[in-house]
């Protein structure tokens, strides 16, 4: 737990925390992917990356909107624009700089694979109708992100020598940030008790299998699973990158907070 956090007591508090954690991941990663707009490796892929970014930011926006309703905040922008980096609960994997196309694909693939299993399980247990409705709607898009990124992992891994090397470097570099996908803290535990979240370790093997199978099919080596893993982001202990990302994202809105910007 970070210094300022308290463990949610009521079901509603647990729900808000869960919504924010899911939303923060998606906003921050969507933001990173949006940096490709106009700079993609081919026109068709520029469109594809923009679609994925739009989906993720859209998911975040819907989740924030619901949290704002529950907490009586003005709107979704309250969470995106008026919180500091230590308040954001996204995992570090999402905030790392854009990187090259191989890094982008590796990150979308690892994250979408995780989201795929997570949403699948959540849809089964979440009783809150509004939350469940969102999960179902977003799940369809997550399946596409998984399909698109998986196909690209195969092409980069089993393409040219250069693409193979870049893909291998990307997975090696990013691997230490995958541990956080499966870290559960006390907030998660409360959410699990209240049927708002699931024990991610329950599907860790499935996740690993899909990742390992894909990497092998792509002729890539699976990075060392026992290596040091970064942790702490869910408690607000981020990398140095998030602060800069937020400085850019929030500056205009915070400079003129009383102006109408919607």
């Amino acid at each position: 737990m970070s210094t300022f956090d308290t463990i949610p007591k009521t079901k509603q508090e647990a729900l808000v925390e869960t919504l924010l954690r899911l939303a923060d991941d998606r906003l921050i990663l969507g933001h990173r992917i949006s940096e490709w707009a106009g700079h993609g490796p081919e026109l068709e892929e520029d469109l594809a990356l923009a679609n994925i970014a739009l989906d993720m930011i859209g998911h975040a926006s819907a989740l924030y909107t619901y949290a704002a309703e529950l907490e009586g905040k003005a709107d979704e922008d309250h969470y995106a624009y008026f919180r500091d980096d230590i308040d954001f609960k996204n995992i570090a994997l999402c905030e790392l700089p854009r990187g090259d196309f191989a890094f982008t694909i590796a990150r979308i693939f690892l994250f979408s694979t995780f989201s795929y299993f997570l949403y699948q399980k959540l849809i089964d247990i979440v009783e809150d109708e509004q939350f469940n409705g969102m999960l179902q709607k977003h799940f369809k898009e997550i399946k596409y992100h998984l399909r698109h990124s998986r196909e690209w992992v195969l092409r980069l891994g089993d393409g040219t020598d250069e693409s193979h090397q870049r893909a291998q470097d990307a997975f090696n570099e990013i691997w230490m940030y995958t541990g956080e996908l499966f870290n559960l803290d006390e907030v998660d535990q409360v959410a699990i008790q209240k049927n708002l979240f699931v024990d991610t370790l329950d599907f860790r093997e499935e996740w690993e299998k899909l990742v390992v199978d894909t990497l092998e099919e792509a002729t890539l080596n699976v990075p060392d699973m026992e290596q040091y893993m970064f942790s702490g982001s869910r408690q607000g202990r981020h990398t140095e990158h998030l602060g800069r990302l937020l400085a850019e994202m929030q500056f205009l809105r915070r400079s003129y907070p009383d102006a109408e910007w919607k």
């Binding site: 933001h31 949006s34 923009a50 739009l54 930011i57 809105r253 102006a259």
Partner: peptide, 18 residues
């Protein structure tokens, strides 16, 4: 895109650039 002042405007702009 990365500095749009609301999530709505961010999505509108990204969709437009796309």
């Amino acid at each position: 895109i990365t500095r749009a002042p609301s999530l709505k405007r961010k999505m509108v702009l990204l969709a437009k650039v796309q």
